[in-house]
Design a protein around this nucleic acid. Structure first.
Length: 507
DNA sequence: TTCCGACAGTGGGGTCGCAAT
DNA sequence: ATTGCGACCCCACTATCGGAA
C-alpha cells in the first residue's frame, strides 16, 4: 500500500473529534490493507513504529528535512525498511549515514508525507487516535469483539501483531493468545485517591501495600532463563544481574513476577529515586545494588494466575518469595489502611497502593481495582515567566516558571526569587485564557517561546516532594508540580522560601 | 437525560550512553 | 573534557466522547 493512502486516513482522523468517525476511517483503511503491511501500519498510525525509537529526534528530523517530492511514490513497506535501517545504524556511530538514510526517505516523501513521517519519528502524531482508538478500529475492521482484541494486545504486548491476527486469522486464534513466559504483558496500572480510606471505599476489602519509589519490573523465568522488562516492555535484563540471580534461586521452574526495583541504604530504607535511576539507567554494573520487591505473580509452573483473585496470587507470592514480597496487609478496615499508610511513609516510602482482594490481574488497564495514595504537599510560589503552549494550547500561555523567595539572598539578590521548577498541569481552559492575558500585562521582556513577567502573581502549587537539582540555582527542584489555584489574596513577598523547600530534601 | 469510564493530549525533572565539538 | 541529543525512567491533570445508568 502507498504511504499516501495511510497519510490521507491519518489526516482525516485528525480532522474530526468524533471517535466513532476516527474508528470508522481507520477500520476502512485496515480492511483495504495487505497482510504484510498491517503490523507496520498500526505502528505508524499511533506513532510507535514496530522498530521502536530509532534514534531520530526533533533535531535530526529538522536537519534531514528538505524539498518534498511532487508525487507520492513511497510505500508503507518502504518506510518500514527505512526505519529498520535507521535502527540498525543505531549504535554504529555513523551519524552521517543515518542522516543520509533519513534524507533519502524524506526526499521521496510529499509534503504531507513528510509531516507524517516527522510525527511518527517524534512519537507525536496528535491525531486523537492512539492504542485505544486503534484497538476499536481493529475490532471494527475484523468483526471481532473489542474485548477480545484488547485482551490479545495486552497479553502479547503487540498491537500490530494483534491486528494482523484479528484481521487475517480466526476468532479461535485470537482468543488463544495468552501468557507466554518470556514475552512481556502490559502491566496493570493504578488509579489515584486522596486517602487510604477513600481508596478502600472504592475497592472494598483490599490488600493495602507499600508503594515503593523505584522502577517497575516484570520478571520472566523459564528454567534458568530470566528476562526482565520495564513498564513499557523494554528489556533491561542485562542491567539487573542481581535481580536475575535472585529470581534464579526462587523455588520454582517457571514464573512471571510483577514488582519494583530500587536502591536501599544500610538500614533497608529507600534511597532517593535519582540514585535508583542512575544505576538502572547504566549498562555497566555499579557499586549501587538494586533490590527487587514483588507484589504480584501472573504465572507459576504452567499455571496462569491472571484470572485468580489477588488473594490467591498473594498466597503464591508469599510461598515462593516471602522475604521479597512488598509489605502490606489485607483489610476492610479504614483505620488499618491508614496505619499501613503511615507505616509506609515513616519508612520513607511513597505511600500505598490499595488493591481489591477479589480482583483479577487486568493487564494494561488503569481500573479502580488498584488505587494509589500518596501525600500531597502544597506551597505558594511566584510566577517568574510563562511559556507559549503547543497543540491545543497554541496561542495560550501555558507552562509556568515557578520561583521561591530568597529573603537573605543566599542564591542571588536578597528578597529575590529562585526558580525551582515549571508546571503546566492543573490548568483549566478558563485559567489558561486568564493567565494569557494577565501575564502579558505583567510582561517585562520576551524571548522566543517565553514571556518574562514581574514577580507579582502568586500560585498555589501541589507537589509530591522535591529532589536535588543539578539544573536550578537553588539546588532543588519540585517533583510533579501542578497548579491548585491562583492566590489573589497573597503578595509575592509572602510566598514560600527556597530554604523551606530545601528543608524537604533532608526529611 | 445525566453520569462516568476510558482516552488523548500537554508537558514536568532527571538519568544514562554516545557523538560532536 | 564538555555539551547536545535521544531514549526512557518516574509522573498529574483536564477535556472530550460516547456508552452506561
Amino acid at each position: 500500500m502507498l504511504l499516501d493512502e495511510l497519510v490521507i486516513t491519518s489526516d482525516a482522523v485528525a480532522s474530526t473529534r468524533s471517535r466513532l468517525e476516527k474508528v470508522a476511517a481507520l477500520a476502512d483503511l485496515l480492511r483495504r490493507m495487505e497482510p504484510g503491511d498491517i503490523a507496520t501500519a498500526v505502528g505508524l498510525l499511533i506513532a510507535r513504529p514496530r522498530q521502536g525509537r530509532v534514534g531520530v529526534g526533533w533535531r535530526g528530523m529538522t536537519a534531514a528535512m528538505g524539498e518534498p517530492a511532487a508525487e507520492p511514490s513511497l510505500t508503507v513497506a518502504d518506510v518500514d525498511a527505512a526505519l529498520g535501517r535507521l535502527l540498525v545504524m543505531g549504535g554504529a556511530g555513523s551519524a552521517s549515514e543515518r542522516a543520509a538514510t533519513l534524507r533519502l526517505l524524506t526526499a521521496a516523501a510529499t509534503e504531507r508525507e513528510q509531516a507524517f513521517i516527522a510525527g511518527v519519528l517524534l512519537g507525536e502524531l496528535r491525531t486523537g487516535a492512539l492504542e485505544g482508538v486503534l484497538t476499536d478500529a481493529i475490532a471494527r475492521a475484523s468483526g471481532r469483539p473489542v474485548d477480545a482484541v484488547r485482551r490479545a494486545a495486552m497479553l502479547s504486548g503487540d498491537l500490530g501483531e494483534t491486528a494482523l491476527l484479528a484481521l487475517k486469522g480466526t476468532a479461535d486464534q485470537l482468543d488463544a493468545v495468552g501468557l507466554v513466559v518470556g514475552r512481556p504483558v502490559h502491566p496493570m496500572l493504578a488509579a489515584t485517591a486522596a486517602s487510604p480510606s477513600a481508596a478502600l471505599e472504592v475497592t472494598g476489602k483490599a490488600s493495602v501495600e507499600y508503594k515503593l519509589d523505584g522502577a517497575r519490573i516484570q520478571v520472566h523465568r523459564a528454567g534458568d532463563e530470566v528476562r526482565i522488562y520495564t513498564r513499557t516492555l523494554a528489556e533491561v535484563t542485562h542491567r539487573l544481574p542481581e535481580v536475575v540471580e535472585f529470581v534464579r534461586r526462587l523455588p520454582v521452574r517457571d514464573v512471571i513476577l510483577d514488582g519494583e526495583t530500587l536502591a536501599l541504604d544500610e538500614d533497608g530504607g529507600p534511597r532517593p529515586f535519582q540514585e535508583t535511576m542512575a544505576r538502572f539507567g547504566a549498562d555497566a554494573a555499579r557499586a549501587t545494588v538494586l533490590h527487587p520487591w514483588f507484589f504480584d505473580v501472573l504465572h507459576i509452573d504452567g499455571r496462569d494466575l491472571l484470572d485468580e483473585p489477588l488473594s490467591v496470587r498473594i498466597e503464591v507470592l508469599e510461598r515462593i518469595a516471602p522475604e521479597h514480597r512488598i509489605p502490606g496487609e489485607i483489610t476492610a478496615d479504614a483505620a488499618v489502611a491508614e496505619r499501613v499508610s503511615r507505616d509506609a511513609l515513616a519508612s520513607g516510602h511513597e505511600g500505598v497502593v490499595v488493591k481489591a482482594v477479589g480482583s483479577a490481574y487486568a493487564a494494561g488497564r488503569r481500573g479502580s481495582n488498584w488505587i494509589k495514595v500518596k501525600p500531597v504537599l502544597t506551597y505558594d510560589l511566584v510566577v517568574l515567566a510563562c511559556e507559549w503552549g503547543s497543540g491545543r494550547r497554541t496561542g495560550l500561555l501555558s507552562n509556568l516558571h515557578l520561583g521561591a523567595l530568597d529573603p537573605a539572598g543566599e542564591f542571588g539578590e536578597p528578597g529575590g526569587y529562585v526558580m525551582v521548577g515549571k508546571t503546566f498541569k492543573g490548568l483549566t481552559d478558563a485559567l489558561l485564557r486568564w493567565q494569557t492575558e494577565r501575564f502579558q500585562e505583567l510582561e517585562v521582556r520576551r524571548t522566543a517561546g517565553t514571556v518574562w513577567v514581574e514577580p507579582a502573581v502568586v500560585v498555589e502549587i501541589a507537589i509530591d516532594g522535591v529532589q536535588l537539582s543539578p539544573r536550578y540555582p537553588g539546588g532543588v527542584a519540585l517533583r510533579f508540580a501542578r497548579v491548585k489555584r491562583y492566590r489573589d489574596d497573597k503578595t509575592a513577598a509572602e510566598v514560600d522560601t527556597i530554604q523551606t523547600l530545601r528543608g524537604l530534601l533532608r526529611s
